[in-house]
Amino acid sequence: NITNLCPFDEVFNATRFASVYAWNRKRISNCVADYSVLYNFAPFFAFKCYGVSPTKLNDLCFTNVYADSFVIRGNEVSQIAPGQTGNIADYNYKLPDDFTGCVIAWNSNKLDSKVGGNYNYLYRLFRKSNLKPFERDISTEIYQAGNKPCNGVAGFNCYFPLRSYGFRPTYGVGHQPYRVVVLSFELLHAPATVCGPKKST
């Protein structure tokens, strides 16, 4: 009989979020998941679920829940969905086509923008091939755009693969920082350890 609540607040209220190319993952297990707390949290810009209804989450049990978190621009949030393409979905964070879970995003301009620009948040701009679902690539190898080998030196046709967002408070909404948490639900042939409040007695 599990009684402790799942530590969703640790994920959602973290002081610093990860850059999207180096997205953070927390495994959540052996706890009671009260999703209504999240669902009623006012400032969400997006709360979209795939393969599961957000209002039914509290009735369900899962083997594991993974909480992935990172920061992207407002106009990139739409790429955090199954079957998407674009710089983020291709080179930074890719969801599987059969994704079961929820994508939760909110504007973090007050936290993550600075006058003069916040350059701490990076994304991958160049990559030889697209990421596989949930693949994480933190390499900083110089990207070779031409035929000539770069030998690890940036220059003509040789690019550092990461780019900084440089968030400023005055940017338009599409270019403002958004914090994103992706909850993915794993249902294995194993005992369920993460259940909603109704199922955990």
Rank of each mutant, 00 (worst) to 15 (best):
33 A>W: 13
66 Y>L: 08
139 S>G: 12
19 S>Y: 01
193 T>E: 12
29 S>Y: 07
200 S>R: 11
65 V>S: 04
67 A>F: 06
59 D>N: 11
88 I>V: 09
82 P>L: 01
41 F>V: 09
13 N>G: 07
135 E>P: 01
16 R>H: 15
198 K>M: 13
171 Y>T: 14
160 F>E: 15
173 V>W: 14
69 S>R: 02
103 V>T: 01
47 F>L: 07
167 F>K: 03
117 G>M: 08
111 L>E: 15
150 C>M: 05
128 K>H: 13
56 K>Y: 06
99 F>H: 00
56 K>T: 10
165 Y>W: 03
165 Y>K: 04
78 S>N: 12
87 N>E: 11
61 C>D: 09
33 A>E: 05
130 N>G: 08
110 K>A: 12
155 G>E: 11
47 F>H: 06
132 K>L: 10
36 S>H: 08
57 L>G: 04
8 F>E: 03
5 L>V: 11
3 T>G: 09
160 F>P: 14
94 K>H: 07
31 C>T: 06
14 A>T: 06
20 V>C: 04
85 T>S: 13
31 C>Y: 04
181 V>E: 01
50 Y>T: 01
60 L>E: 07
197 P>A: 15
32 V>W: 09
156 F>A: 15
81 A>C: 01
72 I>H: 01
41 F>P: 06
84 Q>S: 12
154 A>T: 14
26 K>W: 04
169 P>T: 09
153 V>E: 14
46 A>T: 15
163 R>K: 14
169 P>Y: 06
180 V>Q: 00
155 G>D: 13
88 I>T: 03
18 A>N: 14
72 I>E: 02
89 A>G: 04
33 A>S: 08
72 I>L: 12
85 T>L: 05
101 G>R: 00
195 C>K: 09
27 R>T: 12
171 Y>K: 12
16 R>C: 08
52 V>A: 04
149 P>E: 14
52 V>D: 03
148 K>D: 12
42 A>L: 08
124 R>M: 02
63 T>L: 07
4 N>Q: 14
30 N>H: 09
102 C>D: 00
119 Y>K: 15
61 C>E: 13
83 G>F: 09
92 N>E: 02
141 E>W: 05
184 S>F: 08
89 A>D: 03
131 L>S: 03
197 P>Y: 15
159 Y>N: 14
128 K>D: 11
189 H>I: 08
127 R>S: 06
147 N>S: 14
128 K>R: 12
59 D>M: 07
101 G>T: 00
32 V>H: 10
168 R>A: 13
90 D>N: 11
175 H>T: 11
90 D>H: 06
196 G>M: 09
116 G>F: 09
98 D>K: 10
117 G>L: 07
27 R>A: 09
31 C>G: 05
116 G>W: 07
54 P>R: 13
44 F>M: 09
68 D>E: 02
190 A>G: 15
66 Y>Q: 06
161 P>H: 02
115 V>P: 15
100 T>E: 05
186 E>L: 00
81 A>Q: 07
187 L>W: 11
26 K>T: 15
107 N>Q: 05
37 V>K: 14
119 Y>E: 15
144 Q>D: 10
78 S>R: 10
14 A>C: 05
49 C>Q: 00
170 T>P: 07
44 F>S: 11
65 V>H: 01
43 P>Q: 07
32 V>G: 05
3 T>H: 08
133 P>K: 04
108 S>H: 03
68 D>K: 01
154 A>V: 11
114 K>F: 09
6 C>D: 05
67 A>S: 02
24 N>W: 00
36 S>A: 09
101 G>C: 01
78 S>K: 12
171 Y>H: 12
72 I>S: 02
96 P>C: 00
129 S>V: 11
55 T>H: 14
164 S>H: 11
35 Y>K: 06
147 N>Q: 14
185 F>T: 01
106 W>R: 02
59 D>S: 13
93 Y>T: 01
71 V>R: 01
47 F>M: 10
49 C>S: 00
157 N>M: 10
117 G>H: 09
167 F>Y: 05
162 L>A: 03
201 T>D: 13
87 N>V: 15
171 Y>V: 14
99 F>M: 01
182 V>T: 00
166 G>V: 10
175 H>Q: 15
157 N>P: 07
21 Y>I: 03
136 R>P: 02
63 T>A: 12
195 C>F: 09
55 T>W: 11
99 F>D: 00
79 Q>N: 04
83 G>Y: 08
188 L>G: 15
63 T>K: 13
18 A>P: 15
194 V>I: 10
200 S>P: 13
85 T>A: 09
58 N>T: 08
38 L>G: 01
100 T>M: 13
106 W>P: 00
96 P>G: 05
44 F>K: 12
129 S>M: 08
198 K>C: 11
99 F>T: 00
6 C>A: 04
2 I>M: 13
149 P>N: 12
65 V>C: 09
65 V>G: 06
42 A>I: 08
82 P>W: 00
29 S>Q: 11
152 G>D: 13
147 N>W: 09
75 N>Q: 10
183 L>Y: 00
56 K>F: 06
49 C>T: 00
4 N>I: 07
53 S>F: 05
7 P>L: 07
193 T>I: 08
109 N>V: 09
140 T>P: 09
45 F>N: 14
112 D>E: 04
105 A>R: 02
90 D>K: 11
10 E>L: 07
74 G>D: 03
167 F>A: 05
34 D>P: 04
15 T>P: 13
182 V>H: 00
90 D>I: 01
52 V>T: 08
2 I>G: 14
144 Q>M: 09
86 G>N: 03
125 L>F: 12
36 S>R: 12
201 T>N: 13
7 P>R: 12
7 P>V: 08
11 V>L: 07
33 A>N: 05
33 A>P: 10
174 G>W: 09
